[in-house]
Amino acid sequence: MSELAMHEIDRLKENLAERAAAEGLIDVSYRLVDSPVGQLMLAATGRGIVRVAFAAEDFDAVLDSLAEKVGVRVLHRAAPLDAAAMQLDEYFAHARTGFELNLDHRLSSGYRLEVQLALPRIEYGHTASYKAMAAVTGRPAAVRAVGTACATNPLPILVPCHRVLRSDGSLGGYLGGLDAKRALLSLEQDPFGN
């Protein structure tokens, strides 16, 4: 297709998304943002941010899974994610230590959700062990389940699973890769960006 035709399609797609939003026809809006830990995909429902994905997860696969779990009416639309994009920019620029966003936790349930809801209690610049999180959530023996809850966190960065480490201080795992986890932790250790 010619560049002009691609431009025409892009404009038509944008108008379609606006009209669809006005008629309440969108289940999930999404957009991509650039960040120091690579490109991120942000997705939102009418209730709030439902998913943050790292490029390593394969964005098309994430869209497929959102279509299956939330609804097939998934469209690219930036506006509902502007606030999240801006707060993430501020976070990466050392100008923000916490997020003020509506989150939609519908992709998690049970103990995983409990753990994920408890994660923001670990403050910016601090870390906790998987074992400590198991204790905080009232199930001291559930260390492995805490690991699973962190590994399946649908809202990484916003819900700070990167602040959970092994008891010996080693990194454990991370959905976005260990480099991303290391980058987030060192960002938070250096609040003035020096």
């Binding site: 797609k13 098309d60 497929d64 469209l75």
Partner: peptide, 19 residues
């Protein structure tokens, strides 16, 4: 398939031909 693909992919795949 359990569900159809996300609508965005439908627009991406068929939008040019429909135009």
């Amino acid at each position: 398939m359990k569900t159809n693909p996300p609508f965005e992919l439908v627009v991406r795949e068929h939008g040019p031909a429909v135009l």
